[in-house]
């Protein structure tokens, strides 16, 4: 069994120590620092990118909030403007309606006054016509000429009674 050849032990031990010491030196001085550096660089980069992403997300959130508040403000403003416009239309309409009413009332009053005038005038003409008729009738009936004043007085008296 070659494993039990004690004469072969010494060279194996010597070379094992040499080989492993060399390997340990190469690993601890060269290879491992290099891999550690690569991994740490990556980790730093990841952390940095993550941080950046978080910052950007926060910014986006802030922008969204700003936008929403702007929209809300605009909506409030537009409602105000709408209410104002409604109010102004409303008051103008009422104003015009009032004006129209006033004008119509004035016209009605005027028309009524005119009608009254016409009636008074008509009444006056009626009185003249009546007195004329009364005078003519009196003259024809009793041959008595009645003066114009007396006839009108008489008619007035009759009308008033």
């Amino acid at each position: 069994m070659p494993q039990m050849e004690f004469a072969d032990y010494v060279p194996q031990i010597v070379w094992l120590v040499v080989a492993f010491a060399t390997l340990y030196f190469l690993m601890s001085q060269l290879a491992l620092p290099r891999i550690t550096d690569i991994l740490e660089t990556r980790q730093r980069r990841l952390d940095h990118d993550l941080e950046l992403t978080e910052k950007l997300r926060d910014e986006a959130t802030a922008a969204l909030a700003e936008y929403e508040s702007a929209v809300a403000e605009a909506r409030g403003k537009s409602e105000l403007i709408l209410a104002e416009a409604r109010e102004s239309i409303h008051s103008e309409t009422r104003q015009r309606l009032d004006d129209l009413n006033a004008r119509l009332e004035g016209e009605i009053a005027e028309s009524e006054a005119r009608i009254r005038n016409i009636m008074t005038q008509a009444m006056g003409e009626l009185a003249v016509a009546a007195s004329d008729a009364a005078r003519a009738a009196t003259e024809r009936l009793i041959g008595f000429e009645v003066s114009e004043e007396r006839a009108r007085d008489a008619i007035d008296t009759v009308r008033k009674s």
Partner: peptide, 26 residues
Amino acid sequence: DISFTNSSAMMVIAVASITLFLMLGT
């Protein structure tokens, strides 16, 4: 006795392979 044997050769090859594997890989 520090004779260079087939075992020593494999140890040296192993050390060289590991070093090359790690260094060339990175």
